[in-house]
Design a binder for these strands. Structure first.
Lengths: 159, 159
DNA sequence: TATTGTTATACTCTATAACTATA
DNA sequence: TATAGTTATAGAGTATAACAATA
């Protein structure tokens, strides 16, 4: 008996039905995450934005003049790790670093016109990719999925 | 207007409400996945099984005499990447590689008594970790979450 | 002292390609 | 030829620690 609780899930394929990991949320989360990331990259193409650079650019477009530290905090990564991402977006001509006169430690990030356009195109592609990947789910199920994912993230251990 | 569709999610914190990425499933999936992985590692401790070695050991316990190729296929990783995982589990004394007489290319994997015990303890710890992290979700919500995650994984692109 | 951006560094995870031994 | 296991290798992604400039 691989499962100790009542089985509530449908459509298990027979060969997987006996393994414990198929009944664990973490395992299914990882597999779904990997599938989504792979499809994201395929959707945005070889030279396209990666999930990380897309997220960073999104924040810069949505929150003009945001600092690098702020972007890192919001994405949950280290400042040091963000440098290469911003370098890349700057090299693509999608944003500029602008030193703030009132606090010269800070470099406010500002999307260029080209960056804004690229972002809007990428956002449309990302939404299409998600719509395709989530086509089997109803709108209510998608909303519930996002809500559950958000709750899990907010339950994060405070070290 | 960061969102183009009707907002169906509750409890957005005001500072995040305007960003596009908060409305994307992929972004929320990544954050939830990272939170779960971090908590998994914390739950199993410093010298404990990692998510990958736990999953591999789980298959060996659940499906005795499974081959390395089969484990890799089921986990969705490359055979080459599995070698180090099996090496580690073997070094811990949790399993042995046993050459199959009928096909001497194959090394059937067999959990030791100690491996079985360690696995049962780890499984209990993992279930406790998930119960804690998902405490805010009802049983129905957990079941629906797993179902959605499974569907996403099964929609994977066939390259 | 504390913070921003940065570099250097190392570690994990994963994939590709090539090899060997078997079939 | 094809498959199982293996090695070597390289590329992401991420974290830590230290530093210079600025507050």
């Amino acid at each position: 008996m691989a499962f100790s609780e009542t089985r509530t899930l449908s459509d298990f394929d027979a060969s997987d039905a006996e393994t414990d990991i198929e009944g664990l949320v973490g395992y299914n989360m990882k597999r779904a995450y990997v599938a989504m990331e792979k499809d994201f990259r395929a959707a945005l193409g070889a030279g396209g934005l990666t999930p990380r650079s897309f997220s960073a650019l999104s924040l810069v477009v949505n929150l003009p003049q945001i600092s690098q530290s702020d972007v890192a905090r919001r994405l949950g990564i280290e400042r040091s790790g963000l440098v290469a991402i911003i370098d890349d977006l700057e090299a693509r001509g999608y944003l500029v670093r602008r030193v703030m006169p009132d606090d010269r430690r800070v470099q406010a990030l500002e999307a260029t016109d080209s960056g804004g356009e690229a972002y809007r195109a990428a956002l449309a592609a990302v939404r299409a990719h998600e719509a395709r990947l989530l086509a089997d789910l109803s709108e209510a199920q998608k909303a519930e999925l996002m809500e559950s994912l958000r709750r899990i993230r907010l339950t994060e251990r405070e070290s």
